[in-house]
Design a protein around this nucleic acid. Structure first.
Length: 626
RNA sequence: AGGCCCGUAGCCUAGAUUGGAUUAAGGCGUCAGCUUGCGGAGCUGGAGACCGGGAGUUCAAGUCUCUCCGGGCCUGCCA
């Protein structure tokens, strides 16, 4: 719509010109300039051609530039060692940017073209409450989901529920044989109760109670049969899951589909996959050695040990279920589930009940699985196996990896964790070394509540509480999104209580400022009523703000292509930063020249509209006042 | 031991895809300012980085290659 449009106009004309002068084809790009002095865009193709043409870049640049023909909105210039720069007429850029409309923007960034994609995130074992590491997964996943939908993908967001694993078994052992009550004490949230009170304690008890430890193996086996214990476990895990989903809802994450591991186990999917694996000789029966009698997958990777898929006793390993799930996602096998609303909500869940199937979630063009970096090896193996199926053609299975959240030494110590000489502490659900999402949020909220109250003494208790809740979530969300996926986040409670600088509250504050101006102005000007808006908004800080707003389409496109929520987060922060400079330097309501005032007002309104779009992508609820 | 990831001011973090042109950008902290002015959860300015070390490729390297150092993770017939 804006800068992206100019980029493609320039690219087209460049292509034409290069063909005209008969230059060899190279894969070049139109890039953004870091220094606005040289114009908005440039190309470095003269350098790329310099060698093969045996000419110096400056001459090539001149040759190209002479051939280029644009209308008055674009000026091309050659500068120093051999760049061709493109300056976009500020009048055009300014007017087009300020007229930003969401429908137009969506159209211009429609890179998905309705392609069917499935995104899995969260996927926390239903035996404990979400901790802040899970929150990172959830925030990244939910933000990606918003980005993919915005750019026109036909997306399914799924949450995988491992309801038959060892971790669930621990809770069942605790309740059935360990003497733990099925009802939490003091109205504790059920997921928190299971995780904090049972999971941690039962693992301690195993140390000295061999019989209890034996029960765990028994329960685990029963979970894979249609047994009474399985039925019981289903009830318990559903209660935990509901509690987890309450937290997810508080964090503003939305899912379309829950896939239960137990439904994979009891479906015919595994049999189909197993036959295919054997038939296509992807796995093979080991005849001798340590793994004798097991079916294994030999990896191509250097020095990797072979992966057991079926144990010598005939049972399947954990990875087997993942292969079925992955194969289902990209349509290597047909639909194996039916679907029912979960807990009477809009959220759907898999079922094997024989009902009419109105939905179809398998067979996606692309599958994105968001799991932390520790599972990279396993995911690599799954991808490798999928690649070997004959009927896997052009489908993409992608593991989107992100680094974990660790605790700072100080924060770990406040939890009573012995840190010894370690600088950062890895969380562990089993050892009870973690910070619950709800608790972390409550701590942040207490602080935000005080700050909000100070600034809004006349507001109702309800208003303050609701506002504090929203600000806290924005703070938490931004905190976990602003780093790139490959960076470990060291979580420090004191640090996350910061409400200024590059934070969620700063974004909300900026939004409220912009809103406040618009509320106080008597009318909203139409751009047609303003004379020469580009001349009224011609101070450096105004130009910089507008030019950055013009980049929104490019940023959204790049963020999606690189699966980078961080890029949108940083862009939004930068835009707010520029707006606050504008706010200090260009008074709006106090400006005496009516035309200038209206121009600024119009800018404020456009900026606010841009923020609404960006906040929506980031999952931040905007507030007109904070 | 092998594989993957990280290393940018005191601390944290950007610097995208495919190397490109200002004094390498921002936040925290620190120092100095700004409010009878549209919300100070803000703004302006200062100090603070030879981008972990070294070598290489290139007209051009924070960015690519190699190597070394430091840190993290993974490597189960557990899930």
């Amino acid at each position: 719509m804006i800068l992206r449009k100019y980029k493609s106009i320039i690219k087209d004309e460049m292509d034409r010109a290069l063909k005209e002068i008969n230059f060899p084809e190279v894969d070049y790009q139109i890039k953004e300039n870091t220094n606005p002095e040289y114009g908005e865009l440039y190309t470095n193709i003269p350098f790329m051609l310099s060698k093969s043409l045996k000419k110096n870049p400056m001459d090539i640049a001149n040759e190209i530039q002479k051939e280029l023909v644009f209308d008055q909105s674009i000026i091309s210039e050659v500068s120093k060692p051999g760049y061709v720069n493109f300056k976009i007429n500020y009048k055009n850029l300014c007017e087009e940017t300020l007229r930003n409309e969401i429908t137009q923007l969506k159209e211009s960034v429609n890179i998905g073209e309705n392609q069917k994609v499935i995104l899995e995130h969260t996927s926390v074992n239903p035996n404990k409450a979400l901790h802040i590491g899970h929150a990172r997964n959830l925030f990244i996943g939910d933000t990606l989901a918003r980005m993919l939908r915005f750019t026109g993908y036909d997306l399914t967001v799924m949450n995988y529920i491992d309801d038959s694993g060892l971790q669930v078994a621990d809770i069942i052992v605790g309740m059935k044989y360990g003497g733990f009550s099925e009802i939490p004490e003091n109205n504790m949230k059920f997921d928190e109760y299971a995780g904090d009170k049972i999971y941690v304690k039962i693992n301690e008890l195993y140390e000295n109670d061999k019989e209890l430890a034996g029960k765990r193996e028994y329960v685990l086996k029963e979970l894979e049969k249609k047994s009474e214990i399985r039925q019981y476990a289903k009830e318990i895990t559903n209660k935990i899951l509901k509690a987890q989903l309450e937290t997810a809802k508080r964090l503003d994450a939305k899912y379309d589909l829950l896939v239960f591991e137990s439904d994979i186990i009891f479906s015919n999917g595994w049999k189909i996959i197993l036959d295919k694996l054997k038939e296509e000789k992807i796995i093979q029966l080991e005849k001798e050695g340590d793994l004798s009698g097991a079916w294994i997958f030999k990896t191509n990777f250097k020095n990797e040990t072979d992966k057991v898929i079926i144990r010598s006793d005939g049972t399947s390993t954990y990875i087997a279920k993942d292969i079925v799930l992955a194969a289902w996602k990209i349509g290597i096998i047909n639909e194996i589930f039916n679907y029912l609303p979960f807990n009477n909500t809009e959220l759907l869940a898999t079922t094997l009940d024989n009902i009419e199937n109105k939905y179809n979630f398998h067979n996606n063009m692309k599958s994105i699985t968001l799991i932390d970096a520790r599972q990279s090896r396993l995911q690599k193996i799954i991808k490798e196996i999928l690649n070997q199926f004959n009927d896997n053609k052009d489908k993409i299975y992608e593991h989107l990896s992100y680094e974990i959240v660790s605790l700072s030494k100080g924060t770990a110590e406040t939890l009573g964790i012995r840190t010894e000489d370690k600088k950062i502490i890895q969380m562990s659900g089993r050892k009870g070394m973690y910070i619950n999402v709800d608790k972390a949020l409550d701590i942040i909220k207490n602080k935000v509540y005080e700050e909000t109250k100070l600034r809004n003494i006349n507001e109702s208790e309800e208003w303050i509480d609701n506002t504090a809740e929203k600000i806290s979530i924005a703070a938490f969300r931004y905190e976990l999104l602003k780093n790139d996926l490959d960076k470990i986040i060291v979580f420090d409670l004191n640090n996350s209580l910061k409400l200024d600088g590059e934070t969620g509250p700063y974004l909300l504050y900026t939004f409220a400022r912009a809103t406040s101006i618009l509320e106080k102005s008597e009318f909203q000007p139409k751009i047609e009523q303003i004379k020469n808006i580009h001349e009224c908004l011609n101070q450096p800080h105004e130009i910089e703000l507008i030019k950055n707003m013009a980049k929104i389409d490019i940023i959204i496109e790049e963020s999606v292509k690189n699966m980078s929520p961080m890029r949108i987060a940083k862009f939004t922060y930068n835009l707010c930063n520029l707006f606050n400079s504008f706010y200090e330097k260009s008074p709006v309501l106090r400006e005496e020249d009516k035309n200038i005032m209206n121009s600024r007002l119009f800018l404020v309104n456009s900026f606010r509209n841009s923020l609404i779009i960006l906040f929506d992508l980031l999952g931040i609820n905007y507030l007109d006042r904070i």
